[in-house]
């Protein structure tokens, strides 16, 4: 890498860190100013709504299979259902994810064998 590329890499690194850290510092100062009230109440409502929505949007995007095919969409649907059912039963974090990946992989393997 030449020196110009190094500068570009450093600028991207610092910029990415600032994008993640500066809004936190802003909110921490905002919460300090509103000290005394509950910190959740002191947060703007739109921000508390936006958090879960960002996770939901990431979920929607991640549902698109890496190799799109009818079998992959079936595997996604069955995998999501299995994950949810295992979560309902265990109310845990690890087991539903493990079960979802196992079922997804099983359906893909089955489709590759049959088709």
């Amino acid at each position: 890498m030449d020196s110009k590329l190094w500068i570009a890499l450093l600028a991207t690194t610092i910029g990415t860190l600032l994008i993640r850290a500066l809004p936190l510092l802003w909110m921490q100062r905002h919460l300090v100013r509103k000290q005394g009230s509950n910190s959740l109440d002191a947060m703007p409502t739109w921000l508390t709504v936006l958090g879960p929505l960002m996770i939901a949007a990431m979920f929607g995007v991640s549902l698109v299979p890496s190799a799109v095919s009818t079998a992959a969409w079936w595997a996604t649907g069955i995998g999501v259902l299995s994950t949810y059912l295992v979560w309902k039963r265990t109310n845990s974090l690890g087991w539903p994810v493990f079960a979802g990946v196992a079922v997804y992989g099983g359906v893909i393997l089955l489709a590759n064998t049959v088709l």
Binding site: T12, G15, T16, R20, L22, L24, V32, S39, M43, M54
Partner: peptide, 28 residues
């Protein structure tokens, strides 16, 4: 290269809402 930096930062712009969302649970 200035355009490369600008575009890569724009892609990450969504991260601005992450820190404030977890701020109430972080210490000073």
């Amino acid at each position: 290269l200035w355009f490369v930096v600008l575009m890569t930062l724009l892609i990450n712009a969504r991260h601005v809402v992450y820190g404030p969302n977890i701020a109430p649970w972080l210490s000073q």
